[in-house]
C-alpha cells in the first residue's frame, strides 16, 4: 500500500524566496507526523503543495499514490488551512453539508451531527458562522476537514485559536483518528502538543528538513543529577543505568543523597538545538 503522503525532492520558489529546498518526507498509513519549524520555514507551503493549492517548482508529492493536486489525490484528503473562512451566512450544519456535497460524502445528517459533537459544537449546529468566535470557527474547520472520512488529514495549525480545553479536545480527537487508521500531517508551534500525540516529528528550517524521528528517538540522554549535602552535581553522559552506581559511589564517599534524577532532552531542547534559536 502506498504511503498516505510521499514527498520527494520538493522545492518551491516564490519569486526570489526559496520556500522549500528539496524536502523528502513521507507519512505512512495511520501515522501521525508533526511538522515543526520557525515562522517562514515552509511548513504551510509543503501542505499547500500536497493539497494542490500551490504548484511545486521541482520534485513531486503523491497522496495515496496519486499525484498531489489531482482529483484522485484530493478525494483522499481532508484539509484545514492556516487562514480560512467560511461564508458568514452559513450555519455550522450548512458548512458541513456544503462540504459533504463537494466531497461526495453520503454521511448525511448523522455524519454532520457526529462531527459537530467531536469538536464540541453540538450546541452550535444552527449558529451562523459570523456569530461564532474565532476558536469556534477553527473547531468547525477541524470538523469540515473530517467530512467524508478522509484517509489523510492535513491540519495547518488547527489549535492556534483554541483555548486549553479546545486543544485537549483536538488532541483526543487526533488520538482517536490514529486508532481508526487515519494518517495525519500536523503543523504546529505547540511542541508539547506534538510531543504528546505524534508518532514522528519533522523539523523544517529555511525550507530544509533538519531533523526527523520519533519524539523518543530525537530526545537524547543529558546525564544524571545528584542532590547531596554538597549541592547539586551533574554527571554528563551518564544514563539511567548509571544511576544506582552513582548513588552507591556517593554514599560510599560519605555524602548524604537527597535526590537523583535522570535528565533527557525534551522536544523543546531538540527543537531549539535543531533550529539554532532562529525564528526565521
Amino acid at each position: 500500500m502506498p504511503d498516505a503522503l510521499a514527498v520527494r525532492g520538493l522545492a518551491k520558489r516564490y519569486g526570489s524566496v526559496q520556500a522549500l529546498k528539496g524536502v523528502d518526507l513521507e507519512v505512512g498509513e495511520g501515522e501521525l507526523v508533526g511538522l515543526l519549524g520557525p515562522n517562514g520555514a515552509g511548513k504551510s507551503t509543503l501542505v499547500k503543495i500536497a493539497v494542490g493549492l500551490v504548484r511545486p517548482t521541482a520534485g513531486e508529492a503523491t497522496v495515496a499514490g496519486a499525484r498531489a493536486g489531482s482529483r484522485a489525490a484530493r478525494a483522499e484528503l481532508g484539509y484545514l488551512a492556516e487562514m480560512f473562512r467560511f461564508p458568514g451566512w452559513y450555519t455550522a450544519d450548512e458548512v458541513l453539508e456544503l462540504h459533504q456535497r463537494l466531497s461526495g460524502s453520503r454521511g448525511g445528517a448523522a455524519e454532520r451531527k457526529r462531527l459537530l459533537e467531536l469538536v464540541a459544537l453540538a450546541d452550535a449546529t444552527d449558529r451562523r458562522v459570523d456569530g461564532m468566535s474565532k476558536g469556534m470557527q477553527q473547531r468547525l474547520g477541524v470538523a469540515q476537514s473530517l467530512v467524508g472520512e478522509p484517509r489523510l488529514l492535513m491540519l495547518d495549525e488547527p489549535t492556534s485559536a483554541l483555548d486549553p480545553v479546545g486543544r485537549r479536545t483536538v488532541r483526543l480527537l487526533l488520538e482517536e483518528l490514529r486508532g481508526r487508521g487515519v494518517s495525519v500531517l500536523l503543523n504546529s508551534h505547540l511542541l508539547s502538543e506534538v510531543e504528546l500525540v505524534c508518532d514522528r516529528v519533522a523539523i523544517l528550517l529555511g525550507g530544509q528538513l533538519v531533523a526527523v524521528g520519533s519524539p523518543h528517538d530525537l530526545s537524547r540522554p543529558r546525564g544524571v543529577e545528584l542532590e547531596t549535602d554538597e549541592g547539586i552535581h551533574r554527571v554528563e553522559g551518564a544514563t539511567r543505568e548509571d544511576a544506582p552506581r552513582l548513588v552507591a559511589e556517593a554514599v560510599a564517599a560519605g555524602r548524604q543523597v537527597y535526590g537523583v534524577s535522570v535528565l533527557t532532552s525534551t522536544l523543546e531542547d531538540v527543537y531549539l538545538e535543531a533550529v539554532g534559536g532562529e525564528t526565521s
Binding site: 484530493r74 478525494a75 484539509y79 463537494l102 466531497s103 474547520g141
Partner: peptide
C-alpha cells in the same frame, strides 16, 4: 481554499 481542496 476549503472549496478548491475538495475533489471538484
Amino acid at each position: 481554499q476549503p472549496l478548491v481542496a475538495r475533489p471538484i
